[in-house]
Design a protein around this nucleic acid. Structure first.
Lengths: 273, 273
DNA sequence: GTTTGTGAACAGTTTCACAGCT
DNA sequence: AGCTGTGAAACTGTTCACAAAC
């Protein structure tokens, strides 16, 4: 790993917080909708409601971009749309390649939101020779062999990975070697990339698991505040796994050390018993 | 409306930070892979590398769950898999409905990661009568009319919205009315839901826009630190900022008066340097 | 020796509340 | 009057570094 600049490039000057950057697209979408309805101006309150955030946060976010509002009036919609678009780099066109044209890749290729704002699908790439040439979303699928040439010929810097997990890192390496510096990863894997390459991931099962966590908690608290009667004991851990001798020790030592053990003594198996 | 209690319901029990919850699925995935290779124990260092985080963070995350490691040794893989699964609520089965069986919905239905861990697709629902009965991923598509009965009959509490943006809020309202309390939204819209309902969103174009932002910045800094016009580092809104009098949308936008960036009128066109 | 678990320092983010402009 | 822009406070999340446990 290049030890050089570890963290953010020291672009002190226009340091827009990451959290703010992540919300700009949201504001932009809300503003675009207003623009289409020919609404001339919005207050932070209205726009915040449309974007689903609170107005103080929105104002602070905008304050990082500059002073684009008018006190007593609000923000000029068209002007803000332009400023945010520019800030996000959407005033230029970004060619994008999608690698892995299975169900998901095809769905992404057909997704309208792609072309609409600043992005253009430059090519669809798949490793299956049988797919080569087949049209998907109006574009012929290209074979992986052409990956490098497609990227350099079109000056592509953003790649979308929609391959199975097993192929993702390999594809990623090739994309990076070919010059890609931003990757959107739909495969359920952790990608490792060199410094200077950005990766964002979209992961269905992670999202579901987060929802399940909160869902479980809801179910647990609405009835009994006590320990959840919990589920099928069928899944309990097998016979004392290779658990390092966690045996006797515990039971006898009452909170003496002050370190908290697991959850309020519910632990199945492996527990001192 | 319904502005009752805004903030979190006082989560009486143990408060696992949201950021930690979001990483648990990542750890779980890495641990599952180790488990399949019959690795008995891992150190925080190794596991952190596999999950793509730093080891201090991982240890702190685990410390919220309890003291499940052994100093000098590491963590027992099987045991941790079980503990995290339980914490996430994956020791029970969550039936899920997918609404909107277009390209994306079908891709999600076919996604293997769904069934694998704690989730089961209970039904696929679409508003198009022509779709009704057609099998997708081995399940017959049901018509929207049946939405309420499907949910209550199967005790579904998690719903996935993969409809066009225009239909999303309406579908959301019906899901919530039918008893759904967790929603994963793939439609590019802000959903409003009553208190107590969790929404997570997955949005392709937002992710791409965030990548574009960083990409643009990279392009700007790699050669000259001042590629961009006369970018004033800090906010220097000397001249009148966004002009209020901007009645006519479109061409007649003289105002602007570069508060900081320069030329431009405004207009949603592609015209940067 | 190794590695966990955690207080304490630090960094980033959100919210508050109000001064200042229109 | 209304609304933005922003310091300061409050909160959340991350990293450090080391004592305690094996």
């Amino acid at each position: 790993m290049a030890t050089g600049r570890t963290h953010r490039p020291a672009t002190r000057s226009r340091g827009i917080p990451e959290a703010t950057v992540a919300r700009l697209p949201l504001y932009l979408r809300a503003l675009t909708a207003l623009s289409e309805r020919s609404v001339p101006t919005v207050s932070s309150e209205e726009l915040a409601a449309a974007a689903g955030v609170n107005s103080a946060k929105l104002r602070k976010d905008f304050s990082y971009l500059g002073s684009y509002g008018t006190r007593g009036v609000g923000y000029d919609v068209e002007y803000l749309v332009y400023q945010i678009s520019r800030e996000l780099g959407l005033t230029q066109d970004w060619p994008v390649v999608i690698v892995g044209i299975g169900n998901l890749g095809a769905a992404l290729a057909n997704y309208g939101g792609f072309a609409s704002r600043g992005f253009r699908v430059a090519a669809l790439i798949d490793a299956d020779p049988a797919m080569a040439g087949k049209p998907v979303a109006g574009l012929p699928v290209r074979h992986t062999d052409e990956l490098e040439s497609i990227i350099s010929d079109n000056g592509v810097s953003i790649g979308v990975i929609a391959t199975p997990a097993g192929a993702a890192q390999q594809v990623c390496d090739r994309l990076v070697a070919a010059g890609i510096t931003s990757i959107l990863n739909f495969a359920p894997t952790v990608l490792s990339v060199p410094d200077g390459v950005d990766v964002r991931k979209v992961d269905l099962s992670i999202e579901l698991q987060i929802l399940a966590f909160h869902e479980q908690r809801k179910a647990g608290e609405e009835t009994t505040p006590a320990t959840t009667p919990a589920v099928s004991p069928a899944i309990a851990p097998k016979t004392t796994p290779a658990a390092p001798s966690r045996t006797a020790a515990g039971a006898g030592a009452p909170a003496g050390a002050g370190s908290r053990k697991g959850p309020d003594g519910d632990v199945p198996a492996v527990m001192p018993a």
